[in-house]
Design a protein around this nucleic acid. Structure first.
Length: 491
RNA sequence: GGUCCCAUCGUCUAGUGGCCUAGGACGUCGGCCUCUCACGCCGAAAACACGGGUUCGAGUCCCGUUGGGACCA
């Protein structure tokens, strides 16, 4: 049994988008599942559009997602000579030929065919040129492309796609396609096939947009005497209008980098992406890395395209709601030590980190994270919603102030009384704080909710959050008292 | 225009001829819990694109139509 070798081969012409990440993920999963090799190949033959910056973004994105490659990155631009040599060999063995037809000639033929309502296909004018004529024209300096020779007989190329099943393409429906341009540059079709041979790729797992190219590539493999790899074409990810996703149209929301910025846990994104067009017969939706590797199979890939459900007009959902939900669930489900590194990084970035959180204040810090983790959607929220827990410098939400502090003018009297009572407490724990507040409410004959909500807003600036007594204990007596007094200005 | 691919709730999907009165998840709405919010739990609305076959029986097989997508031009 041959070692499984798969590759992710992006063009470095922009950013790493979620569709690309999904392709990389499926390849990575397949490699891991079969103890194979995951190869990264940068298809940078389009020198004008390829950028260093883009290469970096691809590498960074994959690294962040945790999709480590075993080999590479290889650069296609460094192998152009191999592609040209392959074209040369195809000519020598009679599988390809030089074509001197000019663009004008071809355009004229196409136009004529159109007018006559006949399907246009290259007519093979140069197919039977004798070697003498070819040599003669080359001496004249006439430019030529190299075309692949499609068998002129009835028959077809067939292959079994792991996702789409048996696929056949009639020779008659394929024209003698170009494999080398007149300036000597190989076409993608040729380059990627040759590179896959060079990299000894066993399974080509790529987007469904490659399906149409596959028969041609198989013809190339066969002509060169190579065994074609196994193909698995995956459905595409489209937007809600069923168009291909692109940064130009959708903005950063389709880039992997953006999810890092916005506080995603990398594996949560992977899990979400895995489920966009792949599923298991059971109802599982959450997979650990190992579970997903174990469950993954090419056969589970959907044949229909799936839609990335992002609606730019919905202010509540800055990306697909399912992705947000999944991230939130991961934040509340994971072991604390699995999410704390991300939280630390975020707090450090905004200057809220205290090195004591790793040492003497670790227990306290863990409590806080535990307290708010079920209420956040992204890692970013720990620094925004969570700010009052890590800093005295926090904002009061206008709505919260109105609703909880300015609801009853008597709070102006109640709150100082409460502060005084709390201050006299010897032990400041869940029980004593709760008793104190409930007692004072009884004495004043007011609903506990009034005071509880008021205090929550006083000490956090927010109207929503963890249970009040947990908050108070976490904050400690001094901060609690201080913040209650300070908030009186707003009452 | 040619070739190919696809079609189940708004979205992701289960479903491979009878377990389908079509299941799950997200989202939406309602309820419980409750000091708020979230979590959790309970519940509701919500889909087999259409038309023909085949079959005792079709979401499931075949053909056509429509719609969408990809590739080539």
């Amino acid at each position: 049994m041959n070692q499984v070798r798969v590759r992710f081969a992006p063009s470095p012409t922009g950013y790493l988008h979620i569709g690309g990440a999904r392709t990389a993920l499926y390849n990575w999963l397949f490699a891991r599942k079969h103890n194979g090799t995951f190869i990264l190949r940068i298809e940078d033959t389009d020198a004008e559009r390829s950028t260093e910056e883009s290469i970096k973004e691809i590498l960074d994105g994959l690294t962040w997602l945790g999709l480590a490659w075993d080999e590479g990155p290889y650069f296609q631009s460094k192998r152009i000579k191999d592609h040209q040599a392959a074209a040369e060999k195809l000519i020598e063995t009679g599988h390809a030929y030089k074509c001197f037809c000019t663009k004008e000639q071809l355009d004229a033929k196409r136009l004529k065919a159109q007018q006559a309502k006949i399907d246009y296909k290259y007519d093979g004018t140069c197919r039977a040129l004798s070697p003498d004529v070819v040599a003669q024209r080359e001496q004249q300096g006439l430019p030529s492309v190299v075309r692949f020779k499609i068998p002129q007989q009835s028959g077809c190329v067939a292959f079994d796609d792991k996702v789409y099943g048996h696929i056949e393409k009639q020779f008659d429906d394929i024209e003698d396609f170009v494999i080398l341009r007149s300036d000597g540059k190989p076409l993608y079709l040729l380059s990627s096939a040759i590179d896959d041979v060079t990299d000894r790729i066993t399974h080509v797992i790529r987007g469904q947009d490659g399906l149409g190219n596959t028969p041609k590539q198989i013809l190339i493999y066969n002509a060169l005497g190579y065994t074609p790899p196994i193909f698995a074409h995956m459905s595409l990810t489209l937007d809600t209008r069923k168009a291909k996703i692109s940064k130009r149209k959708h903005g950063e929301v389709v880039t992997v980098a953006y999810y890092k910025e916005r506080g995603f846990i990398p594996w949560a994104l992977c899990n979400f992406l895995a489920l966009l067009g792949w599923s298991t017969p059971d109802d599982r939706e959450f997979f650990s890395r190992e579970e997903l590797i174990d469950a993954f199979s090419l056969e589970g890939i959907a044949r229909h395209n799936s839609i990335f459900n992002y609606n730019p007009d919905d202010p509540n959902n800055w990306t697909d709601p399912k992705a947000i939900n999944m991230n939130a669930r991961y934040i509340s489900m994971l072991r604390l030590d699995e999410i704390i590194p991300y939280v630390r990084e975020e707090l450090q970035a905004v200057g809220l980190w205290d090195s004591a959180y790793d040492n003497e204040k670790k227990l306290w810090f863990d409590t806080i994270i535990e307290l708010i983790r079920t209420r956040v959607h992204t890692i970013k929220d720990f620094a925004t919603k969570g700010r009052p827990y890590f800093s005295d410098d926090f904002l009061f939400e206008e709505k919260a102030v109105k609703k909880n502090l300015q609801k009853d003018a008597n709070l102006k009297n109640y709150l100082p009384q409460l502060a005084e009572k709390l201050d006299s407490l010897d032990t400041f724990d869940l029980k004593t704080t709760e008793n104190t507040i409930r007692e004072i409410c009884e004495e004043l004959t007011i609903k506990p909710g009034l005071l509880i909500n008021a205090v929550r807003t006083a000490v956090t600036g927010q109207s929503a959050g963890p249970g009040l007594f947990e908050i108070l204990v976490a904050l400690g007596k001094q901060k609690t008292i201080h913040r209650i007094h300070k908030a009186l200005d707003l009452v």
